[in-house]
Nucleic acid binder design. Structure first.
Length: 353
DNA sequence: AAATCGGGGAA
DNA sequence: TTCCCAGATTT
């Protein structure tokens, strides 16, 4: 029988990717790759994945590491809550499952950062269990193949997609089939300019037959992006800079950043309140960091101190050499600012107009 | 400049 | 239960 699944499996054996570093690896590695791949494409993930497994070769090693160390290896990937959840889950696995990754779907899906699709992916890829996944690639493939219109964030639409994902599962070879769905979505059934001529299911793809490939899947309804401004206060002493650990939730949760303020006045208030001489500093060029939901215009304000104040005594504040800071758990815009800093002699500040 | 991705947590 | 949010990268 020439089903959807059998054609995908045949395609996978001929044209799929077989050399990804997490393929055929244990559940820990499959899990790690799935979490990284949720937010980032394969080519970008590979070097992060390699460094991560080298540093944390097992669930036990990951659980034994500090959250800071884990986030440092996540730095630049974004979605840092996922790095923290990964670490939390590793500690739970050590506590509750003796350090070996659980085998039951119901146990896996309970872990922080793992939902229905990721749990199913681990079960299918690592344990060869018959489970349906529904990640971004699969949503796109199924929306087109089955002609399902509407945004996949809509509950009803997502329900239909899950139903199809379950219905199309083959009786066996689920690991190969699952990899086929993902590889097909990534290389053939791409968001723009899909290569339908290379598709193993072009013959009965509803979107292709009805000439709706470009319209499916329906995009998310979008809204205007608000803009905000912020000042990064770069307190420097020689080549050392003061960084604060951000609260665990919200933007850049748990990462190290310079003190951040709504505007220069607020930065100055804080500066004076902490017993430092105000009014001197260097205003660096404003740049814009774009998030999904807003734009942040960042103005770094650099102040060179003659001596370090006692701020490091505050919990969550630390003086770091700029080089060390670049190796720490910092978000991208902070990395950008730090990488262009060069040391100035203490007290050598320009007067701000 | 716009689209994206699965899960957590707030509403 | 439903809605909103996170962030770097690609198109």
């Amino acid at each position: 029988m020439n089903t959807f699944a059998s054609r995908l499996i045949a395609w996978q054996n001929k044209h799929g990717r077989h050399d990804l570093p997490w393929q055929g690896q244990d559940a820990y590695r499959v899990w790690l790759s799935e979490i990284m791949l949720q937010q980032t494409q394969v080519a970008t993930v590979i070097p992060y994945y390699q460094r991560f497994v080298a540093a944390f070769p097992s669930v036990a090693a990951l659980a034994a590491a500090s959250e800071d160390d884990v986030l440092a290896h996540w730095s630049g990937l974004g979605y840092y809550a996922r790095g923290r959840n990964l670490h939390k889950a590793a500690r739970i696995i050590v506590e509750k499952f003796n350090g070996s990754f659980p085998h039951k779907f119901e146990d896996i899906v309970e872990l922080p950062g793992i939902g229905r699709s990721t749990a199913a992916a681990v079960c299918a890829l690592a344990y060869h269990e018959r489970r349906a996944i529904l990640d971004g690639n699969v949503k796109r493939v199924l929306a087109r193949y089955c002609g399902i219109a509407g945004w996949s964030g809509d509950k009803k639409v997502e329900e239909k997609l899950w139903q199809q994902a379950e219905a199309l599962l083959p009786p066996q070879d689920v690991a190969t089939y699952t990899q086929a769905l993902m590889d097909m979505g990534a290389t053939v059934c791409t968001r723009s300019k899909p290569k339908c001529v290379l598709c193993p299911v072009q013959g009965d793809c509803v979107a292709l037959q009805s000439d709706r490939v470009a319209e499916l899947p329906s995009p998310r309804p979008r809204k205007a992006v608000p803009e905000r401004s912020a000042v990064f206060l770069l307190l420097m002493h020689g080549n050392d800079i003061l960084l604060e650990k951000r609260p665990g939730s919200g933007i850049w949760g748990g990462l190290w950043c310079p003190p951040q303020f709504e505007d220069e006045d607020a930065a100055r208030d804080w500066f004076v309140r902490n017993g430092m001489e105000a009014s001197e500093g260097e205003r660096l060029d404003t740049f814009t960091h774009t998030f999904t939901h807003f734009k942040l215009h960042i103005t770094p304000l650099r102040v060179e101190l003659a001596r370090k104040p006692l701020l490091a005594a505050q919990p969550g504040a630390v003086w770091l050499d700029v080089g060390e800071a670049l190796g720490a758990a910092i978000p991208t815009p902070v990395r950008k600012v730090l990488s262009v800093l060069s040391p100035l002699p203490p007290g050598d500040n320009q007067r701000l107009g």
